[in-house]
Design a binder for these strands. Structure first.
Lengths: 253, 253
DNA sequence: GGCCGTCATTGATCGAGGTCAATGGCTCCC
DNA sequence: GGGAGCCATTGACCTCGATCAATGACGGCC
């Protein structure tokens, strides 16, 4: 699942660890998006127990410190979780897509802020509803599991990777079905191992996600371009001209 | 709950976010440690469903990449989760204490290695047992929730904090009941706001946890000592001479 | 079309933290 | 007691990424 949520299709299941590609429960939650498939009764039931909400891109969904009244599940779109230090330094903690759950804490207040990266549709469940519904709990736990693994990877990135490795890792996350365990490689008979990805974050946001400054991110992009791994036109769209080579630049493989 | 697991007592419950202080289910899982309290039937039942194991300090409990057969709950002691990059760079992801659960993944292999920091007692449940037992699942979810919040905080540390702030934050985590939300301050009538903490990690381990080098950690310790926030004798024991001041040096408050 | 605001790129310089290396202190063991 | 093996500390130097600053590219709007 890439950030722009283009995969409302149900194909391309695989075992990659890529953090945004983890809608174990495929995001078919609304008749408009089911493409003729019917949802299970369970899914219908779950949808009915929460409020459906929509947000525009860059809209704040919830704020760090607010009372944690609801648990939210993304149906469509992408959001970012972030935290601020008192002096204004920001860290973007995680990027979430369809199927992911956010708004979980141990305290009674949200521990992160959540902002829409793209237009977002979600279901908001009251905390009490989640606490009494086993199916919802299972869903929450699954998403938590996946987010946990993603955070483990991200800790390695933040603690131990160079600027270029960070940016390469970030870009690889935007490529569906590549870079994870069991990555199939370019595929048979593919002449050029290239792919276009949409980058739905500004340089500043990427920087805050990767623990860098926007200038360093920009320089890393330029560097990768100079080395022939990247080509790009519009600055929110990148063509990765050699996915395998980019993958090797992540430091993870 | 501090790392050395000294708090088998059941007092000192509070609302701090401190990551190692989260044994919501107090670690009274063995007659020797219950100090006369009787466990609930549920706890007895859960204990019976897993294998009890013990490990010595620095012993490897499980390895990144191994098939994820069991889910483990710490009864006593402290462990560290870590990941390695292929070239040997290591990131210590998280420190866990009594009540915490580890060995959860989305894939069929463990995504982190786990090593004992102190002598450890734990219960290992087969994955299938956890999947079919609601009480165990609830426990797992609770621990996941807490670990998630801890990882969010740690991402801020790794992405945005200076070396001194990182070390100060690390040290504050070792102080029970301080530094979290609702921190009571030094307490009434306390003459000197000081406390002794045991540091169960080597400088190299602290460095790998904080995304620094061991030299930088050492220099940060010296710096804090020079500034009068720290006094220490044996290098695995530190006296924090002004907890509030150290807390302010974390950058978080 | 021309102006303005936002975001990205690029260059010059600086500094925090990494790297390399020497020294010190503690513990264990013979 | 003395030596070996860790681990920690400290110093000298260097490098990567941050900071400061100028310029460029794009899009929206009058």
């Amino acid at each position: 699942m890439t950030l722009d949520a283009r995969s409302t299709d149900d194909t391309a299941r695989d075992v990659r660890v890529s953090d945004l590609d983890r809608d174990r429960t495929p995001p078919k939650h609304d008749a408009r998006w089911t493409l003729g498939f019917s949802r299970t009764d369970a899914a219908e039931d779950l949808d009915a127990r929460g409020r459906h909400l929509t947000y525009g891109a860059r809209e704040t969904i919830l704020d760090e410190g607010d009372p944690a009244r609801t648990v939210n599940r993304i149906l469509e779109g992408a959001v970012m979780l972030s935290k601020l230090l008192p002096d204004g330094r920001r860290q973007i903690i995680e990027l979430l897509g369809p199927g992911d759950v956010f708004g979980i804490t141990t305290t009674r207040a949200y521990d992160v802020s959540v902002e829409a990266l793209t237009p977002v549709r979600l279901v908001a469940y009251e905390r009490s509803v989640v606490e009494t519904n086993p199916a919802l709990q299972a869903m929450v736990t699954n998403s938590l599991r996946a987010q946990m693994c993603a955070l483990h990877d991200h800790a390695v990135l933040l603690g131990r990777k160079s600027a270029i490795e960070r940016v390469a890792t970030f870009l690889m996350r935007l490529v569906p079905n590549r870079g994870g365990e069991g990555c199939a490689g370019p595929g048979r008979g593919v002449a050029r191992d290239q792919v276009n990805v949409k980058v739905p974050l500004t340089r500043q946001e990427i920087a805050d996600y990767l623990g860098l400054t926007l200038e360093t991110v920009s320089r890393a992009f330029s560097h990768l371009k100079r080395d022939g791994l990247l080509v790009y036109g519009r600055h929110d769209e990148v063509m990765i001209s050699n996915v395998c080579k980019l993958c090797r630049a992540t430091g993870s493989h």
